[in-house]
Simulated assay, not measured.
Amino acid sequence: MNQRIARTSNFVTALAVGPAPVLRFSVPLSATRRGARLARILAVEQLASWGLPFDPARLLVAELATNAVLHARVPGRMFRLTLAAVPSAMLRIEVTDTRGDRLPGPVPVVGGSFAESGHGLLLVGELADRWGVEEGPVPCKTVWAEIDLDGGH
């Protein structure tokens, strides 16, 4: 596929040449609470610049970035936020971290009731049309969520 590259600031957006352009935004962020917050802010700004709705995407970005910081942090390593959109069709949110050995699991249950933490992926499952985990390249994993922009039609 032919691609046209548009460079803005330090970010690169690749636009596929053809009937369905693919918008792409990717940025490395520090694996800190500040980095997770910045992921949400940057996602909202990027979606606004593309003219796409930022709900529920901002909640998904917040959850996935927070999970990367809290459960997959490796000192000195960053996580990556990637947004890819086919306007009027689909938005894909990806958060890649360097803890491929720690994959998301089921929501923990303590003594017959839900644990105090671990509910973030329940929220992701409710807000996203699809979500999953891709392993690799070593030592990484990517947790992704997709939202149908056409209302699922």
Rank of each mutant, 00 (worst) to 15 (best):
A43W: 01
A16D: 11
V110R: 13
L64M: 10
R37D: 02
P139I: 09
V74E: 12
G132V: 15
R7W: 15
R33S: 02
G76W: 15
V22D: 01
H153Q: 07
A43T: 04
L60H: 03
A62S: 13
D129E: 11
G100C: 05
P21M: 13
T13Y: 04
G118D: 07
W144S: 05
H153E: 07
P19W: 09
V124T: 09
A68R: 00
S117E: 14
P104Y: 11
E94K: 06
E146R: 08
R40T: 05
P75N: 09
R24C: 13
T66K: 01
P21S: 10
M90W: 13
A14Q: 11
D55K: 12
L81K: 01
Q3D: 07
R102M: 12
L15F: 08
V74C: 11
N67D: 01
L15S: 04
R37A: 06
T8W: 11
V61T: 07
A65R: 00
L122W: 06
V86D: 00
T96K: 00
L23H: 11
N2H: 02
M1C: 02
P56F: 10
L47S: 04
A6K: 13
I93T: 03
V110Y: 02
T98C: 14
L70H: 09
L123W: 08
S113R: 14
P19E: 15
Q46V: 13
G112V: 10
G125M: 11
N2I: 03
R34P: 00
A72W: 06
R58D: 12
G105W: 12
E146V: 14
F79W: 09
G76P: 13
L91M: 08
W144D: 09
R7F: 14
I147S: 02
P106V: 09
D97I: 05
A31F: 02
G120F: 03
R4A: 06
A48C: 05
L83H: 00
F114A: 03
A84S: 15
G136P: 13
R92T: 15
L149E: 05
S9Q: 15
D97H: 05
T13D: 11
D97V: 06
